[in-house]
């Protein structure tokens, strides 16, 4: 089967080389100590930092797409999401679908009116959940999640995990998920890529 995401010899000045193949519908967890390069790996895949190597999505080379096209398909969601407008809906893609948005809101435990909320008044947990929603509405094939539930309580963390899993199943999408939480690790399952000093320690299958 052709992998959805294929990474060959990916390097930055503090990372790599990393080789990785991710199948459609597969979730790969990324772990490792602070400074091991987890965020760097996600940022390099999203092409936000200078990097070398090859990255392929569904058989298409990254360089064949413009950076905006690539980043809409391979969506990076940082641990701390940035908000620049006054209201939440100013941060959504131009062509967002209301049905999708409302379905995501319900599954994240947020009310429909959340899109009209003022950014000033969002809690850090609401920002994380709305950050996921915003990324999902761009219609990506791969999610790059950098400790996305660090500010959420257990109930909302589980909602978040269920939404990502269900969304991956619906779209045959993939996710790379950075986490430190060992209980979350067990809940998420899947392959675990452990980084140490910018290099994979060897993938283990669980």
């Amino acid at each position: 089967m052709q992998p959805l995401l294929e990474i060959r010899q990916l390097r930055t000045d503090r990372l790599g080389p990393v080789d990785l193949r991710v199948q459609p519908g597969e979730l790969v967890q990324i772990t490792g100590a602070s400074g091991a390069g987890k965020s760097l790996l996600l940022r390099a895949i999203a092409d936000l930092d200078p990097n070398s190597g090859e990255v392929w999505l569904d058989g298409q080379a990254r360089d064949a797409l413009t950076p905006p096209e690539w980043r809409r398909q391979v969506a990076y969601v940082p641990a701390e999401t940035a908000w620049w407008g006054d209201r939440v809906d100013e941060h959504l893609p131009a062509d967002w679908a209301r049905d999708d948005a409302e379905s995501f809101l319900e599954r994240l435990g947020l009310e429909h009116g959340a899109l009209d909320w003022e950014v000033e008044r969002l809690s850090s947990g609401e920002k994380q959940r709305l950050g996921l929603l915003r990324a999902l509405l761009t219609g990506p094939r791969v999610l790059l999640l950098d400790e996305p539930t660090a500010n959420l309580d257990l109930e909302n963390t589980r909602r978040f995990e269920r939404l990502v899993r269900a969304w991956m199943a619906e779209r045959e999408a993939a996710a790379l998920w950075v986490t430190h939480d060992t209980q979350q690790r067990d809940r998420l399952g899947g392959r675990i890529l452990t980084l140490s000093d910018g290099r994979p320690e060897g993938t283990s299958w669980t």
């Binding site: 999203a46 936000l48 950076p67 905006p68 096209e69 980043r71 809409r72 969506a75 990076y76 969601v77 940082p78 701390e80 999401t81 940035a82 908000w83 620049w84 941060h91 893609p93 915003r134 990324a135 761009t138």
Partner: peptide
């Protein structure tokens, strides 16, 4: 000062 905003927009598919 607003590098996170800029990268946030880039990550959502905005042009530079």
């Amino acid at each position: 000062r607003e590098r996170r905003t800029i990268e946030g927009r880039l990550a959502l598919g905005a042009s530079w």
